[in-house]
Design a protein around this nucleic acid. Structure first.
Length: 417
RNA sequence: CGGGGAAUGGUGUAACGGCUAACAUGCCCGCUUUGGGAGCGGGUGAUUCCGGGUUCGAAUCCCGGUUCCCCGACCA
C-alpha cells in the first residue's frame, strides 16, 4: 500500500491520559482509536496485525480438529437461567438491553450456555462425540475498571473453543493437545520465550485451571516461575499444598508480573447437566457430555507483544504479526528515486510481498522516525545514493543489520525469510 | 466500588477574578530543503467538559453532574 493513500497518520504526540505503553504506541502508529474507556477501534494497520494473529490461532485450532462457527452475540436470558448465570454470581459482568416489544436480552460475554444449548440439536449417541467448536467473536464485559490500554477492555474479540467429549479420559487428551496448540500460538506470535503454562485457580468451574502467562511489567497478575521446567503458578494458588502437588520448591521459583494470554478450563458436566446435553452410551444409558473451554484474546496478544517490543521511540514487531512484510522508503523526491522506488514496489507486490511504500514528499528524518513507530521489522530504502550504485538498501530493524542488495528479488528473499 | 489526580483549537501546554483566551505542534498555501521528526513567510483552527451560582466582570471562585487516567478491590 502506498502510504500517501493510508487513511491514518503517525502522530508525534499521544493523548496525555493514555498511560499504557501498548496503547500509546498503537495510537501513535495509527493502529487503534480509543472510542471510550476500555473500548478501542481497530484501524487499517492494526486490523492487519490483528487478522494475522487471528489467522495463526485459526490454523492451530484447525490443526487439533477445531471446527469454526459463529454464535449469536445477543443472549437469551432463558438459556442462562438454566445454569444460574443470568443473575447470581455472574450478574455484574453483563451488559443488558431491552427488546422494544418487551423482555430483556444480554450481550454475550462468554458462550458456554448458548453453545451447549445448540449442541443438544446435534448430539444423541456416543457416536456423535467428541467434537470441538470455536469462534472469533466480540465479547462484552461490564468490567468495573478498564485498564492498561488494550490489555483489559470492555469489548474485545475472543477466540473461544469448546470441547465436547464422552468422558474425562477423552477430555484430558484433547485438553493437552489444546495446551500444546496454545504454546505454538504464543511461539508464532513472538512471545513464546516469556510465556509459561501456569497453574491457577479454576474460577467458577473447577478447583484449578491452566493459564498461559507472559512475563511483562504491565501484567496485572503475579506468577512464580520455574524456568527449568518451563512452568509457573499463579500467586492465587501459591501455597505449600499446591507446591507439593506440583513437586516444586519455593526457592526454585522466581516472582514476576505477568499478563494472562490464554486460559483453559475443564468444565466437566456443569453445563451439559444444567442444559441437558446428553448422549446415549453403549449400554443405552443417558450421560452428560464432558466439556472444556479454551480462550485467547487476539487483541490482548497484540498488546502484550507491544509491551515487550515497544519503547517511547518505537517498536519492532515480529514479522509474523506486522501489518506489512516490508516498509519501502523512498528518500528525496527526484524522478530517479521515485521511478526506482515505484519499480521496487511493483515487483514486490506482484510477488505477493506485503509492502507499505512511503511515497510521500516529506523529509528523510520524518520517514525514519515514523517507520520506527509503525513497527514493520524490515526496511528497503531507495535514495539518490542507492540509485547511483544501482542497488537497494536493506535494513533488519531488530538487529540493525544493513546491507546493499543488487536486486529486488534479493529484497524479496529477505522479506519472506 | 473505595482512594488519588485531571478536563482549555486535532494534539501537548499557558493564562493574578480584568485587553480580542496565548504558545508549540498539526493542518492549508507559497518558497526553500531532503540519510533521522529541517527553515522562512502567510493562513486555518476553541461554546475553556456540562448545568447552575457568586461578581460590574469567571477558563480562573462556589455547588452539582459527566468523562478520562492512576492505585486498590474485583476479574472465566
Amino acid at each position: 500500500m502506498r502510504q500517501s493513500f493510508l487513511a491514518t497518520r503517525v502522530r508525534k504526540e499521544v493523548p496525555v491520559d493514555e498511560m499504557a505503553l501498548n496503547a500509546q504506541l498503537l495510537i501513535r502508529a495509527g493502529y487503534i482509536h480509543k472510542a471510550m474507556a476500555g473500548v478501542y477501534s481497530f484501524l487499517p494497520l492494526g486490523l492487519r496485525s490483528l487478522n494475522k494473529i487471528i489467522k495463526i490461532i485459526r490454523e492451530e485450532m484447525d490443526s487439533i480438529g477445531g471446527q469454526e462457527v459463529l454464535l449469536n452475540g445477543l443472549q437469551n436470558p432463558e438459556v442462562w437461567e438454566q445454569s444460574g448465570r443470568w443473575k447470581g454470581d455472574a450478574d455484574e459482568v453483563w451488559f443488558r438491553t431491552q427488546l422494544r416489544v418487551g423482555g430483556e436480552l444480554g450481550l454475550g460475554w462468554t458462550h458456554e450456555e448458548p453453545i451447549t444449548d445448540l449442541a443438544r440439536q446435534h448430539v444423541n449417541s456416543y457416536r456423535d462425540v467428541p467434537f470441538y467448536l470455536y469462534q472469533f467473536q466480540t465479547k462484552f464485559r461490564n468490567e468495573e475498571r478498564a485498564k492498561s490500554g488494550i490489555l483489559r477492555t470492555r469489548e474485545f474479540i475472543m477466540k473461544d473453543l469448546y470441547s465436547f467429549c464422552t468422558d474425562e479420559e477423552q477430555h484430558k487428551v484433547f485438553y493437552e493437545q489444546c495446551a500444546e496448540a496454545y504454546l505454538r500460538v504464543f511461539e508464532r506470535v513472538g512471545i513464546g520465550k516469556n510465556t509459561y503454562r501456569t497453574f491457577a485457580s479454576g474460577g467458577a468451574f473447577s478447583e484449578f485451571s491452566d493459564e498461559f502467562q507472559t512475563i511483562v511489567p504491565a501484567g496485572e497478575d503475579v506468577i512464580y516461575v520455574h524456568k527449568g521446567k518451563k512452568i509457573a503458578l499463579n500467586k492465587e494458588v501459591y501455597t505449600d499444598e499446591v507446591l507439593a502437588r506440583l513437586e516444586l520448591q519455593r526457592e526454585e521459583l522466581e516472582e514476576h508480573p505477568a499478563c494472562e494470554v490464554g486460559n483453559i478450563f475443564t468444565l466437566g458436566m456443569r453445563f451439559s447437566d444444567a442444559l441437558g446435553l446428553l448422549y446415549t452410551d453403549g449400554t443405552g444409558t443417558q450421560v452428560p457430555v464432558y466439556m472444556g473451554s479454551y480462550g485467547i484474546g487476539p487483541a490482548r496478544l497484540l498488546g502484550v507483544v507491544v509491551e515487550m517490543v515497544g519503547s517511547d521511540t518505537g517498536m519492532v514487531l515480529p514479522a509474523s504479526i506486522a501489518p506489512f512484510d516490508v516498509h519501502l522508503i523512498a528518500l528525496g523526491n527526484s524522478d530517479t528515486v521515485a521511478k526506482a522506488a515505484d519499480d521496487v514496489y511493483t515487483q514486490l507486490t506482484e510477488r505477493k510481498i506485503e509492502v507499505l511504500y512511503d511515497d510521500r514528499n516529506i523529509s528523510a528524518g520524518e520517514k525514519f522516525a515514523e517507520s520506527d513507530i509503525v513497527g514493520i521489522p524490515q526496511q528497503l530504502i531507495v535514495s539518490e545514493k542507492t540509485c547511483a550504485e544501482g542497488k537497494i538498501e536493506y535494513k533488519d530493524r531488530a538487529t540493525d543489520e544493513k546491507k546493499m542488495l543488487d536486486t529486488v528479488v534479493e529484497g524479496l528473499l529477505h522479506a519472506i525469510s
